[in-house]
Simulated assay, not measured.
Amino acid sequence: MKLKVITSNPGKVREYQKEFKDYGIEMEHFPHPYDEVQTSDLEEVVNKGMDTIVSEGIRDFIVDDSGLFVDSLKGFPGVWSAYAQKTIGNQGILRLMEGVEDRGAEFRCCIGCDIDGRRIVVTGICRGTITDGERGKDGFGFDPVFSHDGERTFAEIPLDEKNSVSHRGNAVKLLIAEMRRQGLI
């Protein structure tokens, strides 16, 4: 089976390839643009995106929307994480967090998958904290400022370890469980 990973981010494709290789599922990077609805709910963004993609005749794909939700910033940047990353970046988040004691945050990843016209939507979460500064060279986006264990950022750990604990890794586990339940793998 081959699934199109609809994203402009090749880092996401690598993470999916790593997780699905043992199931005989090939991932194809498919950078197909689509309009994302402006809402504060990841699942709504994914479902509307899937509706658009399916209406264009595309099948057998994965699309996801992820966000960093910072507790003391009332969930910002949330669904606007990609925009926040482009405009203020990691340094902007760190500036917003200057002097803030509550550094709690979570990454969320909502995955939508279309297989043979069947729709599966799941959401994975990873709790952690915002660090005091950027650390690490791996990963992408907010990885250098997010720590799941209070010691290392996502940009400081190997991809296999990141996938085992991350929001996307947790969502992929839920997706695989649902695909098994439905007899798709």
Rank of each mutant, 00 (worst) to 15 (best):
R127A: 00
T52K: 13
V165G: 01
D65N: 15
L42Y: 14
V70C: 03
W80D: 12
S164W: 10
C110W: 01
F142P: 00
R168P: 11
A82Q: 13
G78M: 06
N170L: 01
E44L: 12
G78W: 11
G117Y: 07
T123Y: 00
P144I: 05
M27C: 11
D132Q: 07
R14Q: 13
I111T: 07
R152E: 08
F142Q: 07
I93R: 04
S166N: 07
G141P: 03
K21F: 10
D51I: 06
L3E: 06
R95C: 01
K162I: 10
Q38E: 15
C109V: 02
N170K: 14
V79N: 08
K137W: 03
G89R: 10
K173F: 04
S66M: 06
N90Q: 13
S40C: 00
D60S: 11
R168C: 09
I125F: 11
Y83C: 00
Y16Q: 01
E28V: 14
I25M: 11
K86S: 14
R59P: 01
Q91W: 02
K162C: 09
L174S: 05
G128T: 04
A171Y: 09
R95D: 15
H29C: 06
S72K: 12
L96D: 01
E98I: 06
V63K: 04
S147A: 13
I58E: 05
E101V: 11
T123S: 07
D51Q: 14
Q38A: 05
L184M: 15
R168M: 03
S40Y: 02
S72C: 13
N90D: 12
D65E: 12
A84C: 06
S164P: 07
Y23R: 11
V13S: 02
P158C: 07
V122P: 00
P144Q: 08
M179D: 02
F140H: 09
D143H: 05
R119P: 07
G133Q: 14
T129N: 11
